[in-house]
Design a protein around this nucleic acid. Structure first.
Lengths: 233, 233
DNA sequence: GTGCATCTCGATACACCGTACTGGTCGATA
DNA sequence: TATCGACCAGTACGGTGTATCGAGATGCAC
């Protein structure tokens, strides 16, 4: 009566398909796959099932390497941080380069905008980036270092989120800037036509429109100038 | 043969349960309910089913008022914007008050941090806030108004997200600051003990730790000071 | 007034999600 | 070799957003 599975005797049961070497797996492989999926189709395309399928593995297998989906997202973010290494000598150079590198990463991995600032970044790569940053801020009074770093990071997170959000909205309505203007334009046009937002309407219509690059750098300059003033004081 | 439903004759069919006046509904009611749920148990507690249940209505009924869940979230954010009205005379006052009001709103509705910056805010309340803001920036050159507003908003979004994220992390590990220190402390302690992040370790150990309020205001001052310098130039 | 076409609306159903549970398998130990 | 224990992963559960489509209501032509 032993050796029975679901009522079939050994004789009728097919051999286990020669035990295909259980696909070797690693956290790094899982994370890389998840990032690939997210890059291709956004964060919504990252589900444990899809990642598992892409790795030719059953979903529950992943729980040997991560405890929850949230952990996977944390790992993805930290993996991207590996590519964000500020460079430069002067504190201002370093902070600016960190900001630009973060923005570039978000351009390459738009899903990063959804995750940035969502959870504290304590992974090794993020900490390493922070180390580089802090190390380059030796000139600054020790009590001011964290607030300065926090301010720059906060600005970058918000600016990148806004930029990516706008980019997506453009893409969603039509595809290029022409379509965007045709689709959002009319809405704002109608809204402004109500006369309820005169100041806003004036600025939107009359002011020069900076592109995303210039807008980002201008805001960043505000922050850095403010920091510089504080340091000099 | 008329008046038949699923093969039952009139006699066997129970009367329709005296047609309870279909619960009156409105977008505002739906949004208010969703906000109540989110306030109580976070954004995850907001599902169309739960909102519908709370309103004693079937889920699909909601689609008469909104086209998708995303629209509901947009409406929630805009509803909160109704409470964010900057005040003051000088441009600096106004920007600061907008920043503080946004932060307060996020303290009252933590889920706001998850949504801020995630999509362009074009709802009437958000636009009204923008109008007030822009109107108060008359002193500033028209071409600089949008970049200035964008910079402040970007900083606020990032700072609030970081703050709420940290607050949640604290709450998740134990409950109060004591627990937090016991739980994260050891992790950072061990990590720093590796000697891989000397500068970071020094700053974290030696620097004065600002509370959330001071950190937020300090960063905000950087931004505003930078803007002031730009205007004066 | 009556029969029919039309429209509206919401219940049902689908495809998918994260992950708790637990049965089965396998390795180590006595 | 027999038994026990640990561990792995398949099954299954309770949930999600929303497409579909049939039933009921409504308005209209005669």
């Amino acid at each position: 009566m032993r050796c029975m599975v679901s009522g079939m005797l050994v004789w009728e049961r097919p051999e286990p398909p020669n035990r295909p070497v259980p696909a070797p797996l690693s956290r790094e492989q899982i994370v890389r796959t998840a990032i690939r999926l997210a890059d291709a189709d956004g964060l919504d395309a990252v589900s444990l099932r899809k990642v598992a399928t892409a790795l030719d593995v059953r979903p529950m297998r992943l729980y040997g390497y991560i405890a929850s989906k949230e952990e996977l997202l944390d790992l993805m973010v930290d993996a991207v941080h590996a590519g964000i290494r500020p460079v430069g000598d002067h504190w201002r150079e370093v902070l600016r380069s960190h900001a630009e590198a973060t923005r570039s990463a978000a351009h390459e991995h738009e899903w990063l905008a959804d995750l940035l600032g969502g959870r504290p970044q304590l992974g090794p790569e993020a900490l390493a980036g922070g180390e580089t940053l802090v190390a380059a801020l030796g000139d600054i009074h020790v009590d001011a270092v964290m607030p300065v770093v926090a301010a720059v990071k906060a600005y970058v997170i918000g600016a990148v989120r806004r930029e990516i959000a706008e980019r997506r909205a453009e893409r969603a309505t039509g595809m290029d800037e022409t379509q965007w203007q045709r689709s959002l334009g009319p809405y704002l046009e109608r809204t402004f036509a109500t006369g309820r937002f005169p100041a806003l309407a004036t600025v939107v219509r009359d002011a020069a429109h900076l592109d995303a690059d210039r807008t980002f750098r201008m805001g960043l300059d505000f922050v850095l100038d403010g920091i510089e003033a504080h340091i000099a004081r």
